[in-house]
């Protein structure tokens, strides 16, 4: 274990580990706080899908990309939005449905957006963003940039037809897209094994001769390495990659999920592999950070999230006349109002 750690320790800087830890802890704190506001105070409503347990994926993807690279994901979108730099204030305000939210209170939990941060949402139809993300990559290719698109989806989406049409087109046109299946093992309440004869999702890439691999998603180092390799391939115009990143969500599919489809033992086992705990331990063991530094980061995350709650609570709801705004770019659109 120590040898393995030393091998990677030479590759990533102290700053990288500190960045990973802070991002992961920030996402975790955001999710747990928001969930509390949802359950205890009822200030957040609607569907709510937490990223808890999957934070190492966001962390590894961030260090393997540049800011101009696009992220697009499904409705489990809080963590990736925060990672991309959509402000924590605006994310929390969006959950509260406030005008200061990252989608002006019009999106909610499932539809976070940050165009400036190259975060293209937050999509609610399982798998649809695989196709849309392929189109985002098509545009980068068409414009001749070297930007790439990280297109995230869950294991459930791997069974949608759009995945296959997208894979086919992306390989046909060698588009700069990295398909990231965050395999948390459950499509809502249905385990991967119950959704297909093919349990290893990365194998789906083979039908299109798409480079594909399986990645440990509980560790930002392994995520970084796999994504960096795929990003390089995409930037060099060599086409897409499928990464099946194995992860686990401790929380239910959504906030209203009683989780009768899995045992407490199973959840506990994964909690023992918690990506944040593991990272903290390896940073301390490897003397990449001191207890004090870690504590300082934890405190900062608490403060940032607490401030976002205050910001969200003090922000106004959108005004009623926003109902007919942002429906058309055309400002003169004659809505039917009777």
């Amino acid at each position: 274990m120590l040898l393995k750690f030393l091998a990677v320790a030479t590759k990533f800087s102290k700053e990288t580990y500190l960045y990973w830890y802070e991002l992961m802890q920030l996402i975790r704190t955001f999710e747990l706080t928001a969930e509390e506001k949802y359950k205890m105070e009822g200030k957040i409503r609607g569907f709510f899908h937490a990223y808890v347990g999957q934070e190492a994926i966001a962390a590894g993807c961030m260090t393997a990309t540049k800011p101009e690279d696009i992220f697009i994901t499904a409705y489990r979108d809080h963590g990736l939005a925060v990672a991309k730099g959509v402000s924590v204030d605006s994310c929390m305000a969006e959950l509260y449905g406030k005008a200061t939210g990252c989608a002006k209170g019009k999106g909610g939990s499932m539809h976070f957006f940050g165009k400036e941060q190259h975060f293209f949402g937050g999509h609610g139809i399982v798998g649809a963003q695989i196709g849309t993300g392929t189109g985002l990559a098509f545009a980068e290719n068409y414009k001749g940039t070297d930007n790439v698109v990280l297109c995230f989806f869950g294991d459930g989406a791997a069974r949608q037809g759009i995945l296959h049409e997208s894979f086919n087109l992306a390989m046909l046109w060698k588009l700069p897209v990295i398909y990231i299946c965050e395999n948390n093992n459950y499509a809502m309440g249905t385990s991967v094994e119950r959704t297909s004869n093919i349990h290893d999702i990365y194998k789906l890439g083979a039908a299109y001769e798409m480079p594909s691999e399986v990645v440990d998603g509980m560790n930002p180092e392994t995520v970084h390495d796999a994504v960096a390799k795929a990003v390089k391939r995409a930037r060099e115009k060599n086409g897409p990659t499928l990464l099946e990143i194995k992860t686990y969500r401790y929380k239910g599919h959504s906030i209203s999920d009683p989780q009768k489809y899995r045992t407490k033992d199973e959840v506990d086992e994964y909690k023992s592999k918690d990506p944040i705990n593991l990272l903290r331990k390896s940073m301390l063991d490897g003397q990449l950070a001191t207890e004090a530094q870690v504590k300082e980061i934890d405190t900062r995350c608490d403060e940032v999230v607490a401030a976002s709650v205050k910001f969200a609570e003090e922000s106004p709801f959108p005004s009623d006349d926003e109902v007919l705004k942002d429906v058309y770019v055309d400002q003169d659109y004659p809505f039917i109002v009777d």
Partner: peptide
Amino acid sequence: LGFTAVGVGAAQNG
């Protein structure tokens, strides 16, 4: 579905 999605994504991206 696939090429429509590509069009929709491309339109969102300039």
